[in-house]
C-alpha cells in the first residue's frame, strides 16, 4: 500500500466533504425548527459567487467567507418572507430559490469565469501535523475545515444542551403547542432560516475559495440536494452530519481515484451509491419506531397564527 497516496486521498476526502458539512448543518438547523428548505442548492451557489468575488477584490479569507454568509442569509430571507409571512408553499418556494440562485449566479458570475481565487494557506496544527499519514490527512488543512467541525459540535451543544435549542426543537416538533406556550414560532423560524442560509452560503464559498478555486455556473452540481439527503441520513443530528458528509465525500473521491486504487466499474455506478444509500437510510429510519430518529413533527407544515 502506498501510504503517501492514502494520506492524500484522506486529505482530499476532507476537502470534498467540507462544503457538505456546512450546507448539511444549514439545512439541519432549519429542519429542526420545522422548515423544509429545498433552496439549499441556490443558497450555496450564490454564496460561492459572493465569496469568490470578494476574494478576487483582494479581501482576506475571513471577509470573503463573511460575504458568502451574508449573501446566503439575504437570499434565505426571501424564502423566509414567502414561507413564514405569505404562507407560500415551502416545497415550491424552495425550488424557486434554487432556480433563482442558479440563474442569478450565472448572470452575475459570467464576468468572473476564468479567474482564480488566491491560494488559501493551510493551518498546520502543531505537533499533530508532523505525524506520518494522519498529519497531512487530518491536521494540515485550511481554517474552514476546522471551522466546519467546530460548528457541528457547537450546533450539537446548542440543540441538545441549551435552552434556546430546546425551544427551537419544540417549535419544530409541534408549532401549535410551542405557540401556545408563548414562543414566537415565526421569529425563531426566521432566525433558523437566516442562519441556515448563511451556513449554506459558506458551504458554497468553500468550493470557490478552496476546493477548485474557480467559479463556473452551476458548479455546486447538486451538492445542495445531497445536503438535504444528508440531514435525513444523519436523522437530524449535527454530529452525524459530519459522518454522513465524509461518507458522501469519500464516494466522490473514490470515484476520482477509482482507477488508482484498482476499482474498474464505470464511475457512474459509484456516483449512484450515495443516492441509493440515502434512500436506504430513509427506509430504515422510517421503519423504526424510535421517535428520536424521526423527522421533526411540524417539518414542512405551514404555521398560521390563529387570531
Amino acid at each position: 500500500m502506498d501510504y503517501g497516496l492514502l494520506s492524500s486521498i484522506l486529505h482530499a476526502i476532507l476537502v470534498a466533504s467540507t462544503p457538505l458539512v456546512f450546507a448539511g448543518l444549514g439545512a439541519l438547523i432549519q429542519e429542526r425548527s420545522g422548515v423544509l428548505n429545498l433552496g439549499i442548492e441556490g443558497l450555496m451557489i450564490v454564496g460561492a459567487l459572493a465569496g469568490f468575488a470578494t476574494a478576487l477584490s483582494g479581501f482576506p479569507l475571513l471577509i470573503s467567507v463573511i460575504a458568502a454568509a451574508l449573501a446566503g442569509a439575504l437570499l434565505a430571507s426571501i424564502f423566509a418572507l414567502l414561507v413564514l409571512r405569505l404562507y407560500a408553499n415551502p416545497v415550491a418556494t424552495g425550488l424557486a430559490l434554487t432556480l433563482f440562485g442558479l440563474g442569478l449566479s450565472a448572470l452575475a458570475g459570467a464576468q468572473y469565469v476564468g479567474q482564480a481565487a488566491p491560494q488559501v494557506e493551510a493551518w498546520n496544527i502543531p505537533i499533530l501535523s508532523h505525524f506520518p499519514i494522519v498529519g497531512h490527512a487530518f491536521f494540515s488543512h485550511d481554517p474552514l475545515v476546522y471551522l466546519s467541525i467546530t460548528l457541528a459540535i457547537l450546533m450539537w451543544w446548542f440543540i441538545t444542551k441549551s435552552r434556546a435549542g430546546l425551544i427551537l426543537r419544540a417549535i419544530g416538533e409541534n408549532h401549535s403547542a410551542a405557540h401556545a406556550l408563548g414562543f414566537s414560532v415565526i421569529g425563531i423560524r426566521f432566525l433558523a432560516i437566516i442562519t441556515g442560509g448563511a451556513l449554506a452560503g459558506i458551504g458554497g464559498s468553500y468550493l470557490t475559495l478552496v476546493q477548485t478555486p474557480l467559479f463556473v455556473e452551476g458548479m455546486t452540481a447538486g451538492r445542495g440536494w445531497i445536503a438535504l439527503a444528508l440531514v435525513v441520513f444523519a436523522s437530524w443530528r449535527p454530529l452525524r452530519v459530519i459522518v454522513g458528509a465524509y461518507l458522501f465525500g469519500s464516494v466522490s473521491i473514490i470515484q476520482l481515484h477509482g482507477q488508482a486504487v484498482g476499482i474498474s466499474v464505470a464511475s457512474q455506478w459509484l456516483s449512484m451509491l450515495p443516492y441509493i444509500v440515502t434512500i436506504g437510510v430513509l427506509v430504515i429510519i422510517a421503519g423504526r419506531g424510535n421517535i428520536s430518529h424521526k423527522a421533526p413533527g411540524s417539518l414542512g407544515v405551514t404555521f398560521k397564527e390563529s387570531k
Binding site: A96, L99, F100, A106, E217
Partner: peptide, 14 residues
C-alpha cells in the same frame, strides 16, 4: 448566459 433564464423562472415562481 442562457442560465439567466432561471432568474426569470425563479422570480416568476416567487
Amino acid at each position: 448566459p442562457a442560465a439567466s433564464t432561471q432568474v426569470f423562472q425563479g422570480l416568476l415562481l416567487f
